[in-house]
Every structure is written in structure tokens, then in C-alpha cells.
Nucleic acid binder design. Structure first.
Lengths: 152, 152
DNA sequence: TATTGTTATACTCTATAACTATA
DNA sequence: TATAGTTATAGAGTATAACAATA
């Protein structure tokens, strides 16, 4: 099946293809732990911000309260984090559990291995250049206006 | 909220962030046409392969027959393509309709504008370097084994 | 009034499984 | 037997809307 060349020169299309490769391997790397890359990111945010509440976590992940709720439920069910009493009676304080700390360390190892595989054909200099150029891509005006959601 | 530095050096994480920016603007650019970037890609594949069947389309998009079916239904409902009799009685031949051609051209214009916004801070040389480096990222062994699906 | 958590509901995308009609 | 399309169903992931408790 022919691909068609309409998208060939587009940066966004190349990033889409690259992203598919990266996310697939990252998923496989984390699958034994029953978590997706997005859930590991949530776990890392909680570790970096002990005692944060669900709403703040959701904002950091660009999802609303309801979605943050579901995410936290999964991490609690997995025994990785717990909800403790928060700064007021409305709020939960999220904390990584000791077992969660161990798991996070293992998962980060697997993720770094995956990342090494992804960039295996790059020299150190090329890798640095790529990182720098990716950082120069910018959020266009249209997208910067913010999505129109009710919640956060 | 602190970000935590565990993912900072990872190529895959940087690509994830960049992808989010790119896909959001691309979605906004195509929203007036009622199609997502993925559906435009499907449309371009059909245009590049007139008379292709749904299964082949699905394979090119890495989705199974059932998902390809739904996708084609949407494009048919939008009046962009049609199903014609295929090479045998089991098969549909997918064809872009004249109206679809027009829409595709407009959507490609909007998508290219979005792509220009994304790379607006890059010189032509930087842009070329970025494209070349992204092409050097490779599908790791683990992911190359192929996903374990029943279908395509 | 505003905020936090929660629940119910729905929509998109994708998958699996089973059915049918062809081949 | 194998393949193409179809349908029903289910599971992530996300969103909206409403409610209770608290601020």
C-alpha cells in the first residue's frame, strides 16, 4: 500500500510516527508492572510533591478532577500510594508508599533502557542536538488559548 | 507543583511533550472539518490507493478490521468517500469522492499552517536536522516483535 | 459562593469474538 | 479452510454534570 507523500515534509507527522515507536516500547517496558507511562508519570509527580491533592495532580497532568480521581484509585488499588488526611477536610494528601518507592525505581530503570534502545543509533552529540531542537518547538497561538473545558 | 527531574533526560519523554503540542494544534486546525488528524491520514491513504479495501487500509493504519470499519463508516457518512464493488464479492473498493478531494486539499492547507507554527522558531537548517535525527530513532527489538493481536 | 472529592453517565478509540458470505 | 466485511460487546481514557461536605 502506497503511503502518499502529502505528509512527508511535516514535522508534526514525523513526530507522530516517532511518538508511536517510543510509546509502544515504553508500554511494553512497563507492562510487567501493570502501569502505563502516563501512570508512572503520575507516580513521579506524587513522589516529587508528597502530600499534594488530586486536583493539583490532575492539573499537572492536564486532566480534570474526575480523571485524576480514577487515576489515583488505580494507584491506590495497586498499593503504590495512599490517601492521607489533607490540609483541610475536603482535601486528600497523596503519598507514595514504601513499596511504591521500590516499584518506581524499577520502572524508571526499565524506562531508561527503553529510551536507550530508542536512541541507539544516535551519537551523544546527535542526541543532545535532537533534545535541544525538540525544546525549540513551540506551542502555537491557537493551542495556547487553552482548551475549553469546564473543569481544570 | 514540582515536575521532578526523573524524566528530564529521556528522549521519549521529550517526544511525548512535543507530540502533545503538535497534536493539539493539528486537532484544532482540522476541527472545523469534523475530522481528526488520524482520519485525514486515512483519507490520504485512500486517495493514494484508489480502490483499496478496508483491511488493507486498516493494516496501513495499524488498526484491525473492526476499527477500520468504523473509520470508513465515518468517512462515508461525511460524504468524503464511497464504497464501490471490489475485486471480488467479499471486498469493498474505497474511493475518494469529488467533494472529498476538495476537502482534503483544504485540510492539508490547514495542517501545513499548523506545522509551520510548530516549527516557527527553527531555521531551515535546524528543521532539516531535526527531521533527519527523528528518522534515526528506531523501533527497538522488543517492540518489533509485533503486538499480540488476533486480527491485523 | 467557591473548592474538593465523588459518582453517574457518555463519548472516542481500540480490541476480541462471533457471524455471514464469499473464496 | 481462509478471508472480507460486519456486528455486538468490552475496556481504556477522557469529559460533562451534578451532588455532598467543607471552606
Amino acid at each position: 500500500m502506497k503511503q502518499g507523500s502529502d505528509l512527508d515534509g511535516l514535522l508534526g507527522y514525523r513526530i507522530e510516527l516517532t511518538h508511536l515507536i517510543a510509546i509502544e516500547d515504553a508500554r511494553l517496558a512497563l507492562a510487567p508492572y501493570g502501569l502505563t507511562p502516563a501512570k508512572l508519570t503520575a507516580l513521579l509527580l506524587i513522589r516529587a510533591n508528597p502530600g499534594c491533592d488530586q486536583t493539583a495532580l490532575g492539573k499537572a497532568l492536564s486532566v480534570n478532577r474526575s480523571s485524576a480521581m480514577k487515576l489515583v484509585n488505580v494507584l491506590v488499588d495497586r498499593g503504590l500510594i495512599e490517601r492521607r488526611p489533607g490540609r483541610d477536610l475536603r482535601t486528600n494528601a497523596l503519598h507514595l508508599l514504601p513499596g511504591g518507592e521500590e516499584r518506581v525505581a524499577e520502572m524508571l530503570d526499565r524506562l531508561r533502557e527503553s529510551d536507550r534502545r530508542l536512541g541507539a543509533d544516535l551519537t551523544a552529540a546527535e542526541r543532545a542536538t535532537l533534545m535541544a531542537l525538540l525544546k525549540k518547538l513551540r506551542k502555537p497561538r491557537a493551542a495556547r488559548r487553552g482548551a475549553t473545558t469546564t473543569d481544570g
